[in-house]
Amino acid sequence: MLVTNRQKMVGLIGLLIVLLAAMWMSIVCGYTDTSWRQAVAALIDNDGSNAHLVVATVRLPRALIAAAVGASLAMAGALMQALTRNPLASPGIFGINAGAGFLIVVMVTFFSISSLQMLSWVAFMGAAMAALIVFVISAAGKDGLTPLKMTLAGTAVAALFASLTQGMLAMNEKALEEVLFWLAGSVAGRKLELLAAVFPYLAAAWLGSMLLARHVNILMMGDDVAKGLGQRTTFIKAAAALLVVLLAGGSVAVAGPIGFIGIMVPHMARALAGVDHRWLLPYCALLGGILLLMADIGARYVLMPCEVPVGIVTALLGVPFFIYIARRGIAAK
């Protein structure tokens, strides 16, 4: 849709404005009525009133977390789809969500850990563990690290961790009660300290993704062509896999396993900016933040005064999109 670099830059600026507007809506909208004047006053001159406390301690962190998590999941999805050359790939294909959930259930079941901050770090370690297992399995054999082997290994590892998690939850109702809301994926009730703990990793992954974008473009031409151009394909794939772990693992650590952002957003970004990852990744970051912010705002009103976990809303949006992409891929063959 956007052809020239100038058009793409204008598009980025426009999306940035939309992202800021969505963050402002997230701060203002909710069960507690808040005017834009109250929101400004809460951010500039907080007087400790209930309305100001809601804005400063609940909605502002929630907006920042939603923007950061949405951007990270979308960028991780774009890298995964490039790495596996699979239009349906997402961080879940690495078993990242399943690995994080599995390790959290293990810690709650056997070690009675209930601290949300501690569980966030456990989730980060579980995500990294799952990705490492997938990478080792995929790299084994004479063919090395191939997209098909990564896809199959990721699917198998995700299924294994999901089965083990379900088995432990079936035997331990207490663990089910404690982790069920987290497993559904949500940015509600998360404190800014959780984001601050993983933000250095997310920021490093954002920067690393942009630095790797040109190499990913070459990798998309195929391994033989990339090697002919002097690219160290195994190193690039390993670096991209590490970035996916940091992006998706950090997101899962803060907000739980929020699905379908990594599948939907890269396709939207390609429709706007094309397949050049130097443009695709920043478009994914902005669109991912916007989508998760708007989904979170909608989650507040579905069952007002109760809230629906945002992971359920993204699933409702993502399943039809997933079916459409899958059917289009089958038709193309």
Rank of each mutant, 00 (worst) to 15 (best):
F111H: 05
V108Y: 07
E193F: 07
L148N: 12
G14N: 07
R278V: 14
S209R: 04
M150Q: 11
R232Y: 04
K149A: 12
I96N: 03
N46V: 03
T57M: 08
I13A: 15
N46G: 05
A100P: 01
V319A: 15
F235D: 04
M221F: 12
K333L: 14
M23E: 10
K174M: 13
I27A: 13
P309F: 09
R270L: 10
A74G: 00
I104K: 02
L180W: 04
T109F: 08
M107F: 12
G11E: 11
S26E: 11
G318K: 10
A22T: 08
D33I: 07
L247Q: 00
G99F: 06
V157A: 05
M210W: 10
V54Q: 02
M304G: 04
T314H: 06
S138K: 02
A89T: 12
A203R: 05
L2F: 15
A197P: 05
T34M: 12
D296F: 02
A203G: 03
I297F: 02
V319C: 08
S115D: 12
L292V: 01
A271R: 12
N172K: 04
L43V: 10
L164S: 05
S90F: 10
D33A: 15
G99D: 01
T4R: 03
M1N: 10
A98G: 06
L19Q: 01
T146V: 09
V58P: 01
L292H: 02
M168P: 06
V122N: 10
L119N: 07
I137F: 11
I65L: 08
L317K: 07
G95E: 03
L88E: 10
A156E: 10
A67Y: 03
A331E: 13
A299D: 05
A204Q: 07
Y301M: 10
L73I: 04
V245A: 08
T155M: 13
W121Q: 14
H277C: 11
L303C: 04
V3K: 15
I17C: 11
L16D: 05
F235A: 13
G189T: 05
A123R: 11
A238S: 14
M221W: 05
L53T: 09
A131K: 00
N5L: 08
I113V: 15
I290F: 03
V3L: 15
E173L: 11
S251D: 07
M150G: 00
V244W: 02
V18S: 03
G298Q: 00
E177D: 12
V244D: 02
I323W: 09
V40P: 00
M150E: 05
A56V: 04
C29A: 14
L242M: 15
V136G: 01
A76N: 00
L60A: 12
K174D: 14
V18T: 11
H52F: 01
V10W: 14
G167A: 06
S251K: 07
S35A: 11
R62C: 01
A130V: 08
A51E: 14
V28P: 00
A253N: 09
A42Q: 09
G288E: 02
A153E: 09
